[in-house]
Design a binder for these strands. Structure first.
Lengths: 233, 233
DNA sequence: GAATCTATTGGGGGTTTCCCGTAATATTGG
DNA sequence: CCAATATTACGGGAAACCCCCAATAGATTC
């Protein structure tokens, strides 16, 4: 999964970066970041107010693969305060590096999910005392929640992103066969059910995997269910 | 997809209903409703401040199958103001019935999604002039957004729901391995990751299949995601 | 009409999964 | 405490799956 820095795209205007800077100003944050991803499409894209040096380092090192703020937020419904993250190996790695670039480990990430498996993460960080932080968060969390929805909604409906996060369109045959696979049928079974060769079934499963960016059929079934394309058998 | 009225469950406390009533009071709404659904698991459950007569009518007529507020919100990231709904056949049907029970067609629904394909919808309605409504919404939308996340997070992590979605108990090892399978890893990969033999991995997958009553691993992954034991990789 | 996409079937061959065993340790219940 | 059950672990062999290739027919698009 590669990172795409949207600010480097020629056709991309800078309103998102400005938007994030305004968020910082208004809510007394040092930095703000938005990351959008679609596991099914295998994409990550982001806007940040961090310096270019940190952005470069983050991408070069592939820190997005281990970043605990991303991992945790992807599995949460509610906002995640970074103080609640596990202080594991990955945490040490990412935040030690971040510290070198002057980025604090005090922050919050708000996850927003769309209907196609897309996830938007709005993060805000601030270097200050623990007490100060604990007073600040309750006052801004509600607004940040709304802003997170707003920015993710905008990003997902913009042409630039929808081209990148194209949600997979499986053919009716592919969906039909994937649905039978989710129902526990073997390729041979499905072939018998649909009166086609099990070879053909395998072809459709393969194209389904490719479209869903899945390595295996179990993963494809999981993705398809997560997106709502099929139902659990 | 059947509806489950959580308030009728004996072991269910009434804090959600109280919560909704407080939302009404604080934000000057006539009624508030929360609906949680998991298309993957095929369940809908809800709390409402509407009268029992409307609840009964809604369930008897199966209005949830055509309710445009549900349909629209399921596909939206941002809150949906009911004034933006298409005035189609289904709309007429549902809101004509609702009107007979004293429920206005002026409202807003806020969708929240969790990592398992679960969707929470917080709706609030108020009978008032269009102008009044347009002034009210911007003032409360941010708070309602937060509340929607809060209530959905609570419902999804509550024991009540997990008891309703029949829950096989998979061992931590089985869940761990099933999660990796959902992430597209092969048995060999998983064995390497966990430093065990790929044979052992297969045994855990087999017992997972048995517990989930699944014939194949893709089906087991689908079931586990539908139940919320693991998340789509 | 040509190009493109989808659905279909097939061969050959390597890889993975699955079912059959065995067995040590852990946990639970009488 | 001991017995029953569950969990963890490993291996051989058969079955299923997955990937490479090619080929035909129908529908859609340009």
């Amino acid at each position: 999964m590669d990172i795409v820095d949207l600010s480097t795209l020629p056709e991309q205007d800078t309103r998102y970066d400005e938007f994030l800077r305004q968020v910082c100003d208004k809510y007394e944050m040092d930095h703000a970041a938005y990351a959008g991803m679609n596991p099914a499409a295998g994409t990550i894209h982001g806007h940040v107010t961090y310096g270019d040096d940190w952005k470069a380092h983050y991408q070069e090192q592939g820190l997005h693969l281990i970043d605990p703020t991303l991992h945790m937020s992807q599995r949460s419904i509610a906002p995640v305060d970074w103080s609640r993250l596990e202080r594991g190996k990955d945490f040490q790695r990412v935040f030690r590096d971040a510290h070198d670039f002057g980025i604090p480990d005090q922050g919050i990430t708000i996850p927003v999910r769309g209907p196609y498996g897309d996830i938007g993460l709005l993060s805000a960080v601030r270097e200050c005392s623990r007490d100060e932080w604990k007073k600040l968060v309750p006052n801004v969390i509600s607004d940040l929640q709304s802003l997170a929805v707003h920015i993710h909604d905008n990003v997902m409906t913009s042409d630039t992103i929808s081209r990148m996060l194209y949600h997979p369109t499986l053919s009716s045959r592919e969906l039909e066969i994937l649905q039978w696979a989710a129902a526990g049928k073997s390729q041979q079974d499905i072939g018998d059910i649909l009166s086609i060769s099990h070879r053909t079934v395998e072809v459709h499963l393969r194209s389904s995997r490719e479209k869903l960016n899945a390595l295996t059929t179990p993963q494809a079934v999981g993705r398809a269910i997560g997106i709502g394309l099929i139902y659990p058998g």
